[in-house]
């Protein structure tokens, strides 16, 4: 297994979460507000103290040397605090700090990540002057640029907490398609999504959290059922199959 979580607990917020994610797998975390999705992401990356073991690529992540971890693991937090007018290009280029790949390669990677997130036309603009969705795409391009090339790292892990929350539907699809491309290269991808239908369409496996515990896990069409959603979200929903892809689609409202 690429990423193994064993009995991850954070007092009062997360209880004995055990999970395995394979290399190249996209794992979607779903669950109601306060279920512990963000806490789990932060426990994996080591931003908060947690008990249990996070093992990535055969070694406890906490024991990885800082620089090596930065070349292999990228994480997008739910909220961003950048308040200084760096240009979008400068923000993305910060992701290359852990790499010693040289200016030319870094510029190419910044341009490629910006193109993937459809912000090539915004690169010279001040981050603080961008709209909420544009800022999110710049931050996404930044974490993508951190782990863009397979040859810069051994195993690669991408952790995304609500990566599409501020995006329009076209850009949501664009982000999810980009993640699929990275997973095909062998990147282990873990994302938190509130849109259960979008998660079901783009995850290889879904994990539902409730009250800090793992409620249910499995392929999207097994997890996304009316009974499971009623249990996890306490919400009345109808689940139908997408007419083209067959993925479960959640109707609520």
């Amino acid at each position: 297994m690429s990423l193994s979580l064993r009995d991850i607990s954070v007092p009062g917020r997360l209880h004995d979460v055990t999970l395995d994610v394979a290399a190249g797998e996209r794992l979607g975390l779903i669950g109601p507000n306060g279920a512990g999705k963000s806490t789990l992401i932060r426990a994996i990356i080591g931003d908060i103290a947690a008990t249990g073991h996070v093992v990535f690529d055969g070694q406890r992540l906490a024991a990885w040397p800082r620089a090596r971890r930065a070349r292999s693991v990228a994480c997008l937090a739910q909220q961003q605090t950048l308040a200084f007018p760096l240009s979008a290009r400068e923000v993305i280029a910060l992701a290359r700090a852990p790499h010693a790949t040289g200016r030319t390669v870094d510029d190419q990677i910044v341009a490629a990540a910006a193109h993937a997130m459809d912000i090539s036309h915004l690169l010279t603009r001040a981050y603080t002057r961008l709209s909420g969705g544009e800022r999110q795409r710049v931050q996404l391009a930044r974490v993508l640029a951190q782990i863009w090339r397979a040859e810069d790292a051994g195993a690669r892990l991408l952790l995304l907490d609500e990566p599409v929350a501020a995006l329009d539907i076209a850009h949501q699809s664009r982000v999810m398609t980009t993640l699929a491309g990275l997973a095909e290269q062998g990147v282990t991808v873990v994302f938190v999504l509130h849109d259960v239908s979008l998660a079901a369409a783009h995850a290889d496996r879904l994990v539902a959290l409730r009250d800090g515990r793992l409620a249910t896990a499995g392929p999207p069409d097994e997890v996304v059922t009316e009974a499971n959603l009623a249990h996890v979200f306490a919400a009345a929903t109808r689940v139908i199959a997408h007419p083209d892809t067959g993925h479960p689609v959640v109707l609520h409202g």
């Binding site: 932060r42 990356i45 800082r66 070349r71 937090a77 950048l82 852990p98």
Partner: peptide, 12 residues
């Protein structure tokens, strides 16, 4: 400038 966690993720 990105935030303390972000700087830590970048290996600082």
């Amino acid at each position: 400038l990105l935030g303390e966690s972000e700087a830590r993720h970048l290996g600082f």
